[in-house]
């Protein structure tokens, strides 16, 4: 089902948290609401599921305005950051809760619970209580509970934030698998750009209560609207240098953005600099190179170069990957 948020504004008292925001999610699509902490991601999510009232604007589910509907009648599944499982109920009861309040009969309910427990691989845990589960298992229960009522939309608020690195990787693909299997329209809130890029069809990058850019991960990475987007996406992050540092100048260009993979010996030897920092990441090494005017460029290279801090290098930049920004930070 298509979701449209049109000119949405949210205020808490006098402070405007979200201003005039518009967002469309196509049916079956999974998008990420990505942004730094406090930019209004959760607020947007809560407005969509009805926990927060919408102060201004429209919220359309499949072309129908639902802004005035209470959360109970919006048919949205939500996975909260802390999972918000009901501690006094067993896993089965937790999953069955959305069906129970719909007064679905017991046998149908049990069949559904079983089906969704199998979908998220927790059929062996049904009689346990949330307190007896690991973080990853709790998260699966929360997912099953959100999915069991067959919602029109699935909203996930930083679902992976509480998991360890390995589990996070596992659940990333798990959530994507579930979303694709069920064909649900989903919104994932995250402040982790890797998560957003690897899981979602499109990313809405937010900053200060606005959407800065809304695009596919690839085009957002390659063609960022401005320097904020360019710096937010990519790990290790992009580095910015002036024309002087780079030894080239163009009209209206205030700064150049160079991603680490766009700087290195394979791109020539136009720039000379001193290696100030080396970080070994196993397969790759990360270098900080201080240019003659003191500006720093980052480079990522296959491991085993043997270059140590203090060494002087003559490297070049990939001209075709150079990003140009004007005085206001807009990309040219």
């Amino acid at each position: 089902m298509q979701l449209d948020l049109i000119n949405f504004t949210k205020r808490f008292g006098d402070t405007t948290v979200i201003e005039d925001m518009s967002l469309s999610v196509s049916s079956g699509e999974m998008i990420a609401l990505l942004g730094p902490s406090g930019c209004g991601k959760s607020t947007t999510l809560f407005a969509i599921c009805g926990i927060h009232r919408i102060d201004q604007g429209q919220l359309m589910f499949g072309g129908k305005d639902v802004a005035h509907l209470p959360s109970q009648s919006r048919n949205v599944g939500v996975v909260f950051q802390n999972y918000a499982l009901y501690p006094h109920m067993t896993v089965a009861e937790n999953i069955a809760f959305p069906l129970k309040v719909q007064k679905m009969n017991r046998t149908d309910r049990e069949a559904m619970v079983r089906r969704y427990a199998e979908l998220v691989h927790i059929e062996a845990l049904l009689e346990r209580r949330p307190a007896q589960l690991s973080g990853g298992q709790q998260q699966r229960v929360a997912l099953a509970r959100a999915l069991v009522r067959q919602p029109d939309f699935l909203l996930l608020d930083e679902p992976l934030a509480n998991l360890d690195a390995k589990l996070r990787l596992e659940m990333r693909s798990e959530i994507r698998r579930l979303q694709q299997e069920t064909g649900l329209t989903a919104i994932l809130v995250t402040h982790d750009q890797v998560e957003a890029m690897s899981m979602c069809d499109r990313i809405a990058l937010m900053n200060g209560g606005r959407i800065v850019q809304y695009d596919t991960p690839t085009s957002m990475y390659e063609r960022p609207e401005n320097d904020f987007v360019a710096s937010f996406l990519g790990n290790p992050p992009i580095s910015f240098v002036s024309g002087a540092g780079l030894g080239q100048s163009e009209a209206r260009v205030a700064r150049y953005g160079i991603r680490p993979e766009g700087f290195g010996p394979q791109f020539g030897s136009a720039l000379s600099g001193r290696v100030t920092f080396v970080e070994t990441q196993g397969r790759e090494d990360l270098f900080d190179v201080s240019l003659t005017n003191g500006e720093v460029l980052r480079s990522i290279q296959p491991a085993g170069s043997g270059i140590r801090p203090g060494a002087t290098v003559q490297w070049g930049v990939a001209q075709d990957k150079l990003l140009r920004f004007d005085q206001d930070g807009r990309r040219l």
Partner: peptide, 26 residues
């Protein structure tokens, strides 16, 4: 936790159901 009450609301529980199934047991 408020998130638990929010969760029950988006799960479709009415006020009364929220009281009966979420608040009272706790």
């Amino acid at each position: 936790p408020t998130s638990m009450l929010h969760a029950s609301e988006v799960d479709g529980a009415s006020r009364w159901q929220q009281v009966r199934w979420i608040i009272l047991p706790q």
